[in-house]
């Protein structure tokens, strides 16, 4: 057992003063309650309305159609994510450790099936859509890739007019009808429903629509306007001028500086740094040096100034 003054202290045998713990607790509770009510009355709280796929496809139809295409041709963020959604990428590495990959694709997401084909299949069939879907389902992988390549190549000239998405190509097979039908479905609000109800009537899981939304630019643009991007220290920010999760300042700080600001493994690296720092904070009483700073800084002389004064008297 260490004899260091940073570890040991003799039990107090000196004088006591009266102390009413219940009164103290009651006063504190009343003060905090009044302060809370006051702040709530004066400042209220933020509630920016949720974004729907319907709103997204209405306000930014091209962004929605391009995102739908990226889900089909496998270039979207979700399609290339890796664990836990799929095996398309090994995911982030912490040195030699691919933690996410080890735990596996436990929340499987197939962007072609889940974001495009299944929702379209659930639609009331129209002859055009039924034919397109049949053509898609009947084609081999090579044919599908050829259609998608043709559509993707022409997609930089994508236009949206009179509620219809158009791309100048004739070699894309059923893809134009599929993208356009998904756009119609999204604008009607039906896709919002289809994405959450794939597991049935009751739902509380928004993994699919949130991933789809996050693959587009619309949500991120709204976030940028609200200063919420990761590069804007957004993790600790709140919508409007409200204080946010200020206690995340250190976590979001690491993302701003090298090597993390330029690392492709920033997320797992910052998580590791924060885990390490949390353990250090936890173990402060056992770490020589770190536990001596209070004695060295002598802030305690201020806190206990009466005690030391009475001792020296």
């Amino acid at each position: 057992m260490s004899e260091s003054p940073d570890v040991k202290v003799a039990p107090w045998t000196g004088p006591q003063r009266p102390y009413d713990i219940l009164k103290e607790g009651t006063i504190a509770l009343v003060v905090v309650a009044i302060l809370t009510i006051g702040l709530a009355i004066v400042f209220s709280s933020p509630d920016d309305p949720q974004v729907t796929v319907q709103q997204w496809s209405t306000k930014a139809p091209i962004d929605f159609a391009q995102t739908a295409l990226s889900e089909l041709n496998g270039t979207s963020g979700t399609a290339q994510y890796g664990a836990p959604y799929n095996t398309a990428s090994p995911g982030q590495k912490l040195g030699p450790f691919t933690l996410a990959k080890w735990l596996g694709a436990t929340i499987p997401v197939n962007t072609v099936r889940d974001f495009v084909i299944d929702p379209l299949t659930d639609q009331p069939p129209t002859p055009t859509l039924s034919a397109a879907l049949a053509q898609w389902k009947g084609a081999g992988a090579g044919q599908r890739t050829a259609w998608l390549d043709a559509y993707t190549k022409a997609s930089s000239k994508m236009t949206f007019a009179n509620g219809t998405v158009s791309v100048p190509t004739t070699a894309a097979g059923p893809v134009p009808v599929m993208i356009n039908s998904l756009e119609q479905m999204a604008r009607s609000g039906a896709l919002d429903q289809a994405l959450v109800t794939q597991s049935g009537f009751y739902t509380s899981n928004y993994t699919l629509p949130l991933l789809f939304l996050a693959d587009g630019s619309y949500l991120g643009d709204l976030a940028q306007q609200r200063h919420l991007l990761g590069s804007q220290w957004g993790m600790m920010n709140e919508t409007g001028s409200y204080p946010g999760q200020a206690w995340l300042w250190l976590y979001t700080f690491w993302y701003q500086i090298p090597p993390f600001s330029t690392s492709t493994n920033a997320d797992v690296e910052v998580s590791a740094v924060m885990a390490l720092l949390s353990v250090l904070l936890l173990l402060v009483p056992f770490i020589p040096g770190l536990r001596s700073i209070p004695r060295w800084t002598r802030v305690y002389r201020l806190i206990w100034r009466d005690h030391y004064r009475s001792q020296s008297a």
């Binding site: 920016d48 949720q50 974004v51 836990p84 596996g104 928004y206 993994t207 949130l210």
Partner: peptide
Amino acid sequence: NFDSQWISTQAKDGINSTGVGSFFNVLNF
């Protein structure tokens, strides 16, 4: 609301990168 949509889609990357996302799905309301 918008806040939860944005925070969850951002936080998923941090949490997924550690493997915790495999059983703690921030997109599952």
